[in-house]
């Protein structure tokens, strides 16, 4: 503080007389001011929460949009044509009019196999079932077994005795003897 000259006696006296007067009494009161301060603090806290919520939601939205745009399948959502497979992948059965499945002599499963023809056949059958229901399945015909392959009472023959054609017991005896000797 710079060296300031002291006040004169007259100045000090006037200073004291002025200091004896007090400012006019205010009309605002402490409680009202405190209430308004609390209100302002509450509004500020609410504004802070609103800002935080808005920021969080905006960032999350931006993040989700970024992830969606970076995803490999996003082209579909953007309206780009889906990638096409090379060549004609339409099954022949879907282009042809549906034709009744020819019923074979054996069970339906006997017509299926691992060959491409069998797979196509199966797919055609599947397509028909999907469209028309189970009635589209071919009727199964149980063919009678041929007599030559069947086992009937007349086809039974007794075991050949030793020495007769078809008897393998001597060979079996030789094998047993070799085992014992070894």
């Amino acid at each position: 503080m710079p060296d300031l000259p002291p006040l004169t006696a007259l100045e000090r006296e006037l200073e004291a007389r002025l200091g004896g007067l007090s400012p006019a009494r205010r009309r605002i009161n402490r409680d009202e001011t405190m209430f308004r301060a609390g209100q302002a603090a509450g509004q500020r806290a609410a504004r802070r929460w609103r800002t935080a919520t808005f920021t969080t939601l905006t960032s999350m939205g931006t993040l989700v949009l970024g992830l969606v745009s970076l995803a490999p399948w996003a082209g579909i959502h953007r309206g780009n044509p889906a990638p096409q497979l090379a060549g004609d992948t339409t099954l022949p059965a879907l282009r042809r009019p549906l034709a009744p499945v020819p019923t074979g002599s054996g069970p339906a499963t006997s017509r299926l196999g691992s060959s491409p023809v069998a797979t196509t056949e199966y797919l055609r059958l599947r397509e028909q079932v999907i469209r028309l229901g189970v009635e589209a399945l071919p009727a199964v015909r149980w063919a009678p077994l041929p007599e030559t392959t069947g086992l009937t009472a007349g086809s039974w023959r007794p075991r050949p005795s030793a020495g007769e054609p078809g008897d393998h017991s001597s060979w079996q005896d030789n094998q047993n003897n070799k085992t014992k000797q070894s």
Binding site: L18, G20, L21
Partner: peptide, 18 residues
């Protein structure tokens, strides 16, 4: 219209004049 200072009547200075 509204005096800014207040004082007692016994004081040397008149509040309104001040």
């Amino acid at each position: 219209a509204e005096p800014c200072l207040e004082g007692t009547a016994a004081q040397a200075l008149d509040a309104r004049e001040a």
